[in-house]
Design a protein around this nucleic acid. Structure first.
Lengths: 142, 142
DNA sequence: CCTAAATGTAATATTTATGATTACATTTAG
DNA sequence: CTAAATGTAATCATAAATATTACATTTAGG
């Protein structure tokens, strides 16, 4: 899987952590440890889905536009990475005579479709706020 | 995800389809549409886990050594592709000051661990025989 | 009105991952 | 003894992922 899902979750958690602060792509990039262009591309997806607001020009950047308790990792996955579980390599070949070789590609695709649904369901049990809470919980003193 | 899981499933279904036939890596490779070296590597994993028997030398090859009604895609996934769901790219960096950036890699890893478990559970509902049945079921006449 | 700082986005380069090929040692039936 | 098979390492080729560069556009503020 590519890592845009990670970038989206990280960025949203960051924005939820500083909800009044306008964060630039440079700031997000250095926190996430990637480059600003990737951040802008991912943020653009999140904007199109209404999860953040964007301010262009001087002093601009990104700010949260959703309730972190309501947005789940399942939603974010669907926005950034839908279909990524499906193997792009298919065994066999539809043009072959053999019933196994000619059809198994389709059968495996169906199974991956189901896996995708089960994966989204799993991710939907976590909200942005859940992740933020894990990160800001005070640690036991040693 | 890499495609060794697909190759393993396809090969096992093929062997289950011809349970008395010794299939060479060349034969499997041409049915799966890949090269014999990959087949042998994957078959070797399956052999180590007792799912097939191998006969070296002239006239050798692979033959099923399990009950296709008992072996699930979950088991096969664990053999060939365990951990492949975990994104190898980590956002943030443990050495940074920021609590988000320094810890989110670990938190996301935990989530991927859980996803892996849920994925294996999903795959465990399908057996080799289930796949074979889908492929050999007679189609409606048109 | 100008400038500096920001996003949007395309094009390109670099790096990493995946898959294919080649080569050869080993095994074994006949 | 030979031919046909597996096991496996090394190398090559291709594809995918990520980073960089470049530049058009937007906009706050002097």
């Amino acid at each position: 899987m590519n890592s845009e899902f990670n970038i989206a979750v990280h960025s949203l958690v960051f924005l939820a952590y500083l909800p009044t602060h306008m964060a630039s792509s440079d700031l997000l990039a250095s926190n996430v440890c990637t480059n600003p262009v990737r951040i802008r591309r991912v943020m653009n997806l999140l904007k199109k889905n209404g999860l953040i607001q964007v301010q262009k020009g001087t002093g601009g950047g990104y700010i949260l536009n959703c309730d972190p308790k309501e947005v789940t990792l399942g939603q974010i996955y669907r926005i950034t990475s839908s279909g990524s579980l499906v193997s792009d390599w298919r065994s066999g070949d539809p043009n072959m005579e053999c019933r196994i070789a000619s059809q198994i590609g389709d059968v495996m695709s169906q199974i991956y479709e189901g896996a995708e649904i089960s994966y989204v369901n799993y991710l939907s049990q976590f909200t942005i706020q859940d992740i933020l809470d894990k990160l800001t919980a005070d640690k036991k003193q040693v």
